[in-house]
Design a protein around this nucleic acid. Structure first.
Length: 796
DNA sequence: ACCTGTGGCTACAGAG
DNA sequence: CTCTGTAGCCAC
């Protein structure tokens, strides 16, 4: 009976597509069986919880009689009070906290609170991919005046439809946008590349300008680029994929196919050009329209290839977060999930005030050991902890509310009181109760249990099938969620911020990896390198290392954890891989070839593993990446000696200094991490303005030209003269072939590879290639143009 | 209604 | 020339 009731509840758990605020209402969005949109309005209410015992009768009376309080009831140990206004609710919390009365969840947004109360489930939206072409003569800063010339919408099967503006007037644009919104009636989720920063605001601004009033809040606006960045940063193989987030570059890297050769900065001219007959001119209105359609088709194909949108959907379903751009944010996801899990246990979190955010101080993090040896290392074994931080949280029962707050003790008592039998002690000395499961461990256990469920289900399906992929995504989503909990505890922005909790986690990690390294040394092995949860070990066979790992799991960690007072042990070390050859350039920078990886032997075509080297970085020049990757191939993959590297470097030096060269070879791209106005120019001692970083100076130049360079933009530039101080740079778009090739070599291309070679073959002197600029050039102020590689300067 | 964390490396401009 | 602070990116 009971079970049947529970199942019914699960079946009837409300599923919604979205929720938004409208006037004083929360509006829930769903579709009925026929597919029509159903909106359900509820009044906005801000909920605050108090421990019922903390609030005396007269205070209750006062609350009950306040017209701003809409409801009040006792729910178990909690007193639940609902307010009409969220600002008033917050000020009530502040007033209570000031009087020493704790308040709970006072600043949780009403939608999130309702969703947690009713265990709202996230429905699967109807998805579409959008692209707009707008008047190229108008900058984004005047988006209200930016006429939309063309739109395209691709559906979930990648079928695109589009419309184009018929006349250059408001009436025609109104018709154009009316057609788009009519199409969007059937859509719940809209994706666009850079949508948050361009397509979405432009569409809304122009829609308003045209006097149309569609219900845009109903739609889940999801920036495909932001999603891609979040999901792909770790997956990207080389830096090539990270130099530009233009759809063209990403499509080339992921799909091997780019956009049409249409010049998007000339949309206005194209719109006013009658359509060509062959479809090849790329400067007419029909070519623009085709280009626009192709964009949306590419977005769809990108999703087919990566599955990132589906993964987000899965993650959002797991967390109870709606899959729009805000749903990408881990704080959001973890907050939703923790609130729900805590609620089921009757637990409430303390109110978080924005004023507390500033109080966050940095805390001690992971342990990183400098690599111990130079040269090409052979047979290096690597072990790592499985989900180190989640497993620490489980084992030490680390959570804010399980933390033991020590009473103040008199000065003469130097030693701490002994740890109680119901407490365990983290490496920071912080103690946690072990007789009550903490909310954080509980949530992690729950999430890992679900992960295990989907992981097992995945294995029951044939690999590659639809069900297999779905189960795989769900398993991945839960892993992501489990790993985000630690970060949330360490983030002052989050409701669950607890510095002591976060630091206890990292320092237990430090303790465990150091103990592991000690044991390896005692076994007679050599510990080469450590980073956070992994150790690189030499001087043993595969079997010996296997035994060592097993021994750590069977003896070392159980013993250590018992000594700390832990009641359970979730710590597990794994033998991850063995490198045949490995070179360390420094901490977090290495390249190696596998003998085996996770139990599978490497094959002849197994790729090397590269970490942190410039080859992996999006802010290196392509020439630098190419040379470095060739050297990795020689030293690591083929196991060649210094002579082969010598020949390769010589070849590349000539190439960099002499051969025809392209802008994509030499430019360097960096992200504006804040709005342009956020960079402050200092004044030098001589009274002149100091230079900002090169990419910021270039961005300012571009903005003066009317370009849109906002926060998050990648700015590509190259050096035209590295012999002066400060160096002279130009935007990549101004390319005339006039890059300073000596600087390109001396600054960007050679040093990264030199560091690699010095590490691999330290007995060699690699400095002979350091200086390639002719002497005369270094000393004279006026630049001579009569040297190799700078000939293009003559044209100017 | 936005922004998971710390540790480490590198380039650069400016100051001495 | 060396040293210091800023900024960006990457490993975990």
């Amino acid at each position: 009976m009971k079970r049947g009731a529970a199942n019914a509840a699960v079946r009837e758990a409300p599923r919604f597509l979205n929720a938004y605020y409208d006037d004083n209402a929360v509006v829930w969005v769903a579709r009925d069986r026929g597919g029509s949109v159903v909106l359900k309005r509820m009044p906005v209410r801000s909920t605050v919880f108090f421990a019922a015992a903390d609030v005396d009768t007269s205070t209750k009376h006062m609350l009950r009689n306040d017209s701003r309080v809409t409801a009040m009831r006792v729910d178990g140990q909690w007193l639940r009070v609902e307010f009409r206004d969220r600002h008033f609710a917050e000020s009530v919390c502040e007033a209570f906290e000031k009087r020493g009365i704790k308040t709970y969840e006072g600043t949780v947004s009403p939608i999130r609170c309702l969703a947690a109360d009713h265990d709202v489930q996230v429905a699967r939206p109807r998805r579409a991919y959008l692209d707009l072409e707008t008047d190229s003569r108008v900058p984004f800063s005047r988006k209200e005046e930016m006429r939309i010339l063309c739109w395209s919408l691709a559906d979930e099967h990648g079928v695109a439809t589009s419309e184009i503006l018929l006349d250059d007037d408001d009436a025609a644009e109104r018709v154009l946008l009316g057609e788009l919104w009519a199409k969007l009636d059937a859509v719940d989720q809209v994706l666009a590349w850079n949508g948050d920063r361009f397509d979405f605001p432009v569409l809304l601004a122009r829609t308003k300008r045209c006097g149309l009033t569609p219900n845009h809040k109903r739609i889940l606006w999801l920036d495909h680029l932001e999603l891609f960045k979040r999901m792909n940063t770790m997956a990207a193989e080389s830096g090539d994929e990270k130099t530009s987030y233009a759809l063209n570059s990403i499509a080339m890297a992921v799909l091997g196919e780019g956009k049409d050769a249409f010049d998007a900065s000339k949309t206005w001219q194209a719109w006013s050009t009658p359509e060509c007959l062959n479809g090849l001119c790329m400067v007419c209105s029909s070519c623009m329209r085709r280009y626009c359609e192709k964009d949306t088709v590419l977005l769809h194909r990108l999703e087919v290839e990566t599955g990132y949108v589906e993964l987000l959907q899965t993650l959002c379903e797991a967390c109870g977060t709606f899959p729009d751009s805000r749903g990408i944010n881990p704080t959001n996801q973890a907050e939703n999930m923790l609130l729900r899990i805590a609620r089921k246990r009757g637990h409430r979190f303390r109110t978080r005030f924005l004023s507390n955010v500033a109080e966050g101080r940095q805390y001690k993090g992971a342990f990183v050991m400098e690599p111990q040896s130079k040269g090409v290392l052979t047979n290096v074994h690597v072990c790592d902890f499985k989900s180190l931080y989640p497993s620490i949280i489980l084992s030490w029962n680390i959570s804010s509310e399980t933390r033991v707050v020590e009473p103040l003790r008199p000065m003469y008592l130097k030693t701490r009181p002994a740890r109680q039998s119901n407490e365990c002690e983290a490496a920071t000395g912080t103690r946690f109760r072990t007789d009550v499961e903490g909310i954080l461990p509980h949530a992690i256990a729950e999430v890992l249990r679900l992960r295990e469920h989907w992981s097992r289900l995945k294995d029951s399906f044939p690999p590659g099938t639809h069900q297999w992929k779905d189960a795989d995504r769900r398993s991945t989503a839960y892993k992501i969620a489990a790993n985000s909990f630690y970060g949330i505890a360490g983030s002052p922005m989050s409701r669950f911020y607890d510095r002591d909790v976060a630091e206890a986690v990292t320092q237990c990690g430090v303790y465990l990896i150091k103990q592991t390294a000690d044991k390896a040394r005692n076994a007679g092995f050599f510990v080469e390198y450590i980073d956070t949860d992994g150790a690189f070990v030499m001087g043993c066979s595969r079997d010996e290392f296997e035994l060592f790992v097993a021994c750590c799991n069977a003896e070392l960690y159980p013993k250590l954890l018992v000594a700390c007072g832990c009641k359970e042990n979730n710590i597990k070390l794994a033998y991850e891989k063995q490198f045949g050859r490995l070179v360390f350039v420094g901490a977090k920078k290495y390249a190696g070839s596998f003998v085996h990886y996770k139990g599978k032997d490497a094959t002849a075509d197994s790729k090397p593993e590269v970490k942190g080297l410039e080859y992996k970085r999006g802010d290196s020049s392509r020439l630098a990446r190419r040379l470095q990757s060739e050297i990795v191939g020689s030293i690591i993959v083929r196991g060649e000696g210094a002579d082969e590297s010598l020949a390769i470097v010589d070849k590349w030096r000539r190439h960099v200094l002499v051969d025809p060269i392209d802008i994509t070879d030499v430019s360097v791209a960096k992200t504006l991490s804040k709005p342009l106005t956020g960079y402050t120019r200092k004044v030098k001692k001589d009274g002149n303005d100091a230079k900002l970083p090169a990419h910021v100076e270039i961005a300012l130049l571009l903005r003066a030209r009317g370009r849109d360079v906002g926060e998050g933009a990648k700015v590509a530039y190259y050096c035209v003269d590295g012999s002066v101080s400060p160096k002279a740079y130009k935007p990549a778009e101004d390319w005339t072939g006039d890059c300073d090739r000596y600087d390109q070599w001396e600054t960007f291309v050679w040093p990264p590879t030199k560091r690699l070679l010095e590490s691999a073959f330290p007995e060699h002197d690699w400095s002979v290639w350091d200086k390639v600029r002719p002497r005369r050039q270094r000393t004279t102020r006026t630049k001579s143009v009569k040297h190799v590689g700078q000939l293009s300067m003559l044209g100017k």
